[in-house]
Amino acid sequence: MARNMRDSPLNLAALPVGARAHITHVDWDSIDATSARRLRELGLDAGVDVEALHRGSLFARDPMAVRVGRMRIILRLVHAAAFHLEPST
Protein backbone atom coordinates (compact mmCIF):
# COMPACT_ATOMS: atom_id res chain seq x y z
CA MET A 1 0.00 0.00 0.00
CA ALA A 2 1.21 3.49 -0.81
CA ARG A 3 2.53 4.92 2.41
CA ASN A 4 3.15 8.46 1.42
CA MET A 5 4.74 10.08 4.44
CA ARG A 6 6.80 12.71 2.70
CA ASP A 7 5.86 15.69 4.78
CA SER A 8 3.30 14.50 7.27
CA PRO A 9 3.56 11.93 10.00
CA LEU A 10 0.12 10.50 9.22
CA ASN A 11 -2.20 10.02 6.29
CA LEU A 12 -5.80 8.90 6.21
CA ALA A 13 -4.93 5.40 4.98
CA ALA A 14 -3.05 4.80 8.22
CA LEU A 15 -5.55 6.40 10.60
CA PRO A 16 -6.65 3.76 13.14
CA VAL A 17 -10.34 2.87 13.41
CA GLY A 18 -12.05 5.14 15.91
CA ALA A 19 -9.42 7.90 15.67
CA ARG A 20 -10.18 11.46 14.56
CA ALA A 21 -7.83 13.83 12.79
CA HIS A 22 -7.69 17.08 10.86
CA ILE A 23 -6.89 17.10 7.13
CA THR A 24 -4.01 19.51 6.59
CA HIS A 25 -3.47 19.12 2.87
CA VAL A 26 -4.23 16.78 0.01
CA ASP A 27 -2.04 15.44 -2.81
CA TRP A 28 -4.73 16.00 -5.41
CA ASP A 29 -2.19 15.25 -8.16
CA SER A 30 -1.94 11.63 -6.99
CA ILE A 31 -5.66 11.05 -7.67
CA ASP A 32 -7.34 10.96 -11.08
CA ALA A 33 -9.35 14.11 -11.83
CA THR A 34 -12.83 12.50 -11.70
CA SER A 35 -12.24 10.80 -8.36
CA ALA A 36 -10.60 13.93 -6.95
CA ARG A 37 -13.64 16.00 -7.88
CA ARG A 38 -16.04 13.43 -6.43
CA LEU A 39 -14.06 13.29 -3.16
CA ARG A 40 -14.34 17.05 -2.85
CA GLU A 41 -18.04 16.93 -3.71
CA LEU A 42 -18.49 14.43 -0.90
CA GLY A 43 -16.83 16.86 1.48
CA LEU A 44 -13.35 15.31 1.80
CA ASP A 45 -10.98 18.26 1.50
CA ALA A 46 -8.26 20.13 3.34
CA GLY A 47 -9.42 21.87 6.49
CA VAL A 48 -12.02 19.36 7.69
CA ASP A 49 -11.99 16.77 10.45
CA VAL A 50 -12.27 13.06 9.65
CA GLU A 51 -12.87 9.96 11.68
CA ALA A 52 -11.93 6.44 10.59
CA LEU A 53 -14.99 4.21 11.06
CA HIS A 54 -14.34 0.83 9.48
CA ARG A 55 -11.66 -1.01 7.64
CA GLY A 56 -12.08 -3.93 5.24
CA SER A 57 -13.56 -7.34 5.92
CA LEU A 58 -12.40 -10.94 5.94
CA PHE A 59 -10.41 -10.56 2.75
CA ALA A 60 -8.49 -7.32 3.00
CA ARG A 61 -7.84 -4.18 5.02
CA ASP A 62 -9.15 -2.24 2.04
CA PRO A 63 -11.49 -0.28 1.65
CA MET A 64 -12.15 2.02 4.58
CA ALA A 65 -15.17 3.99 5.73
CA VAL A 66 -14.71 7.48 7.15
CA ARG A 67 -16.97 10.14 8.59
CA VAL A 68 -16.74 13.78 7.51
CA GLY A 69 -19.27 16.06 9.17
CA ARG A 70 -22.49 14.09 8.94
CA MET A 71 -21.39 12.10 5.86
CA ARG A 72 -20.08 8.56 5.81
CA ILE A 73 -17.87 7.81 2.86
CA ILE A 74 -16.37 4.55 1.57
CA LEU A 75 -13.02 4.88 -0.21
CA ARG A 76 -10.02 2.76 -1.13
CA LEU A 77 -6.69 3.20 0.65
CA VAL A 78 -4.99 4.44 -2.56
CA HIS A 79 -7.22 7.49 -2.37
CA ALA A 80 -7.06 7.80 1.41
CA ALA A 81 -3.26 7.93 1.27
CA ALA A 82 -3.43 11.34 -0.43
CA PHE A 83 -4.99 12.96 2.64
CA HIS A 84 -2.39 14.22 5.11
CA LEU A 85 -3.45 14.58 8.69
CA GLU A 86 -2.58 16.16 11.97
CA PRO A 87 -4.15 15.33 15.33
CA SER A 88 -7.48 17.14 15.64
CA THR A 89 -7.67 19.83 18.27
Binding site: I73, I74, R76, V78
Partner: peptide
Protein backbone atom coordinates in the same frame (compact mmCIF):
# COMPACT_ATOMS: atom_id res chain seq x y z
CA UNK B 1 -12.06 2.42 -7.39
CA UNK B 2 -14.63 2.40 -4.71
CA UNK B 3 -15.89 5.81 -3.78
CA UNK B 4 -19.41 6.07 -2.46
CA UNK B 5 -21.58 7.50 0.22
CA UNK B 6 -22.71 5.19 3.00
CA UNK B 7 -26.21 6.42 3.89
CA UNK B 8 -27.80 6.32 7.31
Amino acid sequence: HLLMEMPR
